[in-house]
Amino acid sequence: MKKNTINSNAVITIRDLKKSYGDNYVLNGFNLDLYEGENLVIMGKSGSGKSVMIKCLIGLEEHDSGTVIIMGKNIDDLDHDELDELRTEIGFLFQGSALYDSMSVRENLEFPLRRHTKKFGEINDASPLVMEALESVGLARAVDLMPSELSGGMKRRIALARTLILKPQIILYDEPTTGLDPITSKEIVLLMKSVQEKYKTSSIIITHDVDCARAISNRMILLVDGINYAEGTYEELVEMEDPKIKAFFK
């Protein structure tokens, strides 16, 4: 393990990340490296700080101490506009899909484009981009529906399409399969894989779903007690004898 050194291949590097709510330390010196093109799964019990970690990563929550470096930029040094620009390179799939209720699917997908003229230039007609993103999740027919008319699985896919429309290099998935039935979960996992092949993204996937983790991970980190308790491939972790690790793979 090359701890405390910054790997040149790493697109995201987190060092000694700490975050507390009052006296309760959720993250207590967490470290992470995400290499280009890999799918990194982070597993942990609910309430173990996975979501907090990913939100600190993208700047939705402020961390107490530690460094977060994304594509060579320390997010603490960025002002709001620079952070926004960096965020165009990062897609974020929210736990509950987080589609905008008051907008149609088309408007949902167009929404991220409206402030990112720097990356795409002035967009006169967003339709081709919208259709392209929708086709890559297989839901081109839903373009004029409202989010309330969609099923849970469809919402998840539309949300994925919304993150893809900016053609990000990194995608962060927050519990992509929660609240879905096993069959739909499998579909989503397959979709995630195909997206990764198509868009050549690096991904961090937060989950407590072991099946999902096994299917998608190149590498895994177990987040226990606010630190990266164990790291390795799925097979390596399954073999470990530590009771805290074993608890995950029953």
């Binding site: 939705l60 620009e85 965020r87 974020f92 589609l99 008051s102 929404f111 402030r115 919304r162």
Partner: peptide, 20 residues
């Protein structure tokens, strides 16, 4: 409206997609 947008992370989603 804003409350439910906050709860369902729609406000976070906007933040992340670069819209203030």
């Amino acid at each position: 409206e804003l409350g439910s947008m906050r709860v369902t992370e729609q406000i976070d989603a906007m933040e992340v997609s670069g819209t203030n």
